[in-house]
Structures are given as structure tokens and as C-alpha cells.
Design a protein around this nucleic acid. Sequence first.
DNA 1: GCGCTGACTTAGCACAACTTGA
DNA 2: TCAAGTTGTGCTAAGTCAGCGC
Length: 577
Amino acid sequence: MKKLKLYCVIIGNALNRRQSLFSFIIATKERYTDGVKWKFLEHKGPVFAPPYEPLPSNVKFYYDGKHMKLSPQAEEVATFFAKMLDHEYTTKDIFRKNFFKDWKKEMTSEERSKITDLKKCNFTEMSDYFKAQAEARKSKTKEDKLKIKEENERMLQEYGFCVMDNHKERIANFRIEPPGLFRGRGDHPKMGMLKRRIRPEDIIINCSKDSKHPVPPPGRKWKEVRHDNKVTWLVSWTENIQGSIKYIMLNPSSRIKGEKDWQKYETARRLKKCVDRIRNQYREDWKSKEMRIRQRAVALYFIDKLALRAGNEKEEGETADTVGCCSLRVEHIKLYPENDGQEFVVEFDFLGKDSIRYYNKVPVEKRVFKNLQLFMENKEPDDDLFDRLNTSILNKHLQELMDGLTAKVFRTYNASITLQQQLKELTNVEENIPAKILSYNRANRAVAILCNHQRAPPKTFEKSMQNLQTKIDAKRDQLADAKRELKSAKADAKVRRDEKSKKYRIEEQLMKLEVQATDREENKQIALGTSKLNYLDPRISVAWCKKMGIPIEKIYNKTQREKFAWAIDMAEEDYEF
DNA sequence: GCGCTGACTTAGCACAACTTGA
DNA sequence: TCAAGTTGTGCTAAGTCAGCGC
């Protein structure tokens, strides 16, 4: 009864934070213990990519120096390549090979017999045409830009929301991925392949029986309409490169995602309570008689100490050659009994998720070192380091140690606890706001380094650094002037006061610039966003802001505040992870 | 156990949108 | 007011992990 009453309140005012927080707790504790994710789900279905518009006749394609009119299908695929002409991708052999193979499939038999060598294809007119179009888009008038904006807004309002259990929720990706050329990361064997256009007939709709079902475009059909309330997705289709399923799901601000996120951090907090026991256990296991247990224990030590990912097996030749902890190979580590004055050093060098390089030299305990020597005995470089271990074995073991424990919980736990410790260590209530924020970013950075969240240095980095330095120099000159003026303004008390406050103001500005420069330099190759969004319990940041008198807007932008609304609502100043 | 698949989270990059200072 | 620089958002690839059938 009480529950029912609450729901009514929620329906009446779905956007009221306090109330949605209640529904949140109810949902987690009472409503969905049986894998049911919702009772009611209604939406408008996906937005398809716009149909292909053939090129104007003056934009020509040349083969072997001669103009050649392509069939619409072949032309469309050619434009995908033309649009990427300036990208390094198009110079890579695999990319070109894959593209050409798939392009030929789209050609008429006549085209296929003529076009036999990609090197003889000239796409430059197409490429120039698209560049001109992009330029034209940029230089549109204010009114035109506003019109586009309004149209986008209209689409968002129509397709960007759904109703799930009495809440109107934002959908994350309501637009179907347009066709194009597949761009894998790193050395992907499938780069350049044609990602085909998705049609209504490829689409599975998921919604509740008693909802208004989404309508396919006129004269078309959905592949299937199902009513599976044990899953959270609204739309799915099978992608043609890997044959995997893609989904349309809800925005991170939605109840269903927020709840899950909250749960994730609660699991990490439970790990905090038993991590000492687990650490003692794996240290004991280093001595085990059984090889499989020693391997498990050393791997777990790496996952815990270095925040490595679990490392599932991957199908060879289907994806880029990347590894995580359990899939490390002998060639990925080097052992140094002594290195730079430290004993038992392990050097890691491998490509992880997204082909981001993990390079680290770490001193380890002697037992770990000896075990690693043992694991590597009589093995080839491309043999598995942990040949008696995989993620499934590891996670089964972890499950026995703590309910809900898996390898990735260690990343969440270590990231969040590091942030909390670093914030305690680095920040001082006495400092001013820019200094506090620099400290926050430094704490955030410690986590990003731990998790190896890298980014390519921004293209404009050097220049923007230089600009900042110029500003700092100018500000220093200004400060020197102000100091001189203050000195010479001895007699008049009022003038003195004014000069003093001016000097103070300039000092503040200078400090702010210097802090900004430090922050930016330290951030050159480190991405803070990923850890902020996925690994750091937002309640730690909310509590810190409250304690330090920092407005939450300084730490989280609008999107982030929406995602972490539950935490902003929940966490008090004394929150402890 | 073992391989496979589906569902869901995590990830970096490209580009659009906004901000700032000349 | 505009270009340059900076930040935010969208996109979609690439992971993790549970569950299933054998």
C-alpha cells in the first residue's frame, strides 16, 4: 500500500529528484529481484540513417585517368572511401584490401570487370566535394543553423525519449549507425570492410505488450517485435563485421542505468571490507603446491596492484591482438632480478583494450618474481604466461571469496579508494578554489594513471601551451608594474588602498594562470574523463565538494551531473567510500 | 569444463558547440 | 564580431561476464 502511494507521487512528479531517489531504492530493494527490468516500456523505435543521395553529375570519379560513371551502389561505397582520403587509414594495406574486396561486391559486373586496381582509382573530386560541403555547412547563416538545431531538437523530442515504468527517460543512441567503412582500433584485421546499411527488416523491437508499438517506415517491416522485460534494450540489430548484436539503450541519467551504477559502487565498497582477507589469501596462494593456484594468485595480485583488466581470450585473426591479465603472454613481460637499484622488477609491455600500450616497470615481492620465472620456464614468447588460468576460472574463484566479486570490481575499488586517499592527502580547506581544483584534478590524474587511461596529445597542445605561457609572462609584467605603482603611492591612503587591491587581483589572476598551465602540462597524455565517468564513486566527489565549499559544477559538467544525480542527492559531506 | 552468445559496461576519438580575447 | 582555442557530446568499438547447451 505504502509502495503504491509512493508510485503515485512519482508519477505526479517524475523529475523531482528526491522522489525519483525513493523509487530508485524501492526498485533495487523490492521490485526487481527476479531479473525483471521493467513492467512497462513504450518508445517510437529507431531513427534510420538518411538514404544515399547520389553525387551531382559534375563530381566525377576517374579510373586509370578516365572518367567513369558509377552505379549508385558502387558510388555510395566509393564516397565512404573518398570521405576518409585524408586519413592515415586509407594508406594501410589491410584497410585498402578489405575495402576493395567489399567495394567490388557492390559493383555491377561491368564495373567489376573494369575496376581491378584500387591504385588506379581517383577519388579526389569526391573528396573535394565533401570538403566543400563541410565548409558550406560551417559558414551557414545564423538562421539556417538555428533551423537545423530546431529540427534536431524536434527529432530528439520525438524519438529521444521513452516511457519506462512511469518515468519518461532519455534514450542514449536512438539513431541507427549509418553505413560506412569499419574503422577498428590498432591493427585490426577487418579495418576498411563495408559496414552495411541497416534496414527496418534487420531491427528487433523490444517493448511491452500493452504499449503503443513503434511503427516501421511506410511499406516496411520490423524483423521482430518482442516483449522481453528481462533486458533493458529497446532496439537491437546484428552488425555485419563481427556478427555481434548492437543495441539502443537508455541514457546514463535513466533510473535503470543509475541504479546499476550505484550497485557497482556498493559492490566495490563491500570489497573494501574484505580486501585485506583476500590479499592475505592470495599471498598464501603464492606458495601453493598447485600450479593453477599459484597462477591464479599471481594474476590476482596484478589485477589488484596494477588495476589490470581481466583479459578474456579473443578469437585470433578476428580482432586486434590485445591482452589483459589472464591472456598475458611470455613476450609481454621481462624479469629483472635487479634494475636501477631495485630488486625483482617486472617490466610490462603490451597492448591493452583499444590497443592502448601498457608500459610499466614495477618491483614485486620475491615470491611473485620466483613464480613468474617458474611460469615462463620452457615456454616460447607467444605462449600464455598463465597457461592454467582464464577469466572464467578466476571469476569463479572471486565469486567464492565475496558475493558479486569479479576481476573488474578491483579496478573500481582501487580507483575509488585512490581518489579518496589522494583527495585527503592533497587538499587543504584553507586553499583557494583554483588550488583545490588543481588538487582534485591531480587526484583524478593519479587514478587515470593507475587505470592507464591515455589519450593522444591534442593536436594543438604545443601551441596552446605557448599561448598560456605568453599570458603568464604578460601577467607577470603587469604585476611588476602594479608593485611599482603601489610603492610610489605612499602619501594618499585611498590611492594606496586601490593599488593594493589591484596588486592582489593581479596576483590572483597570475596564480590562476600558473595553476592552469601546470594542470594542462600534467594532463598532456592522460584522459581524466574515463575514470571520472566509470570508476570513481561520484559520492566521493560530491562529499569533497561539500566539505571544501566547491560548487559541484566545477567538477561535473551538465551531462555528468545528470548521470550522477543519484549521488548528488545522496551523499553528505561525511560520506566515506 | 568448454565454447559460444547475449547483454551490458568501458573506451578513445572526431567533431560540434561554446567561450574567449583581439 | 570573428577566429582561435577549449570543452562537451555523440559515436561506436572493444571490453567484461553470466548463462546456456553440450
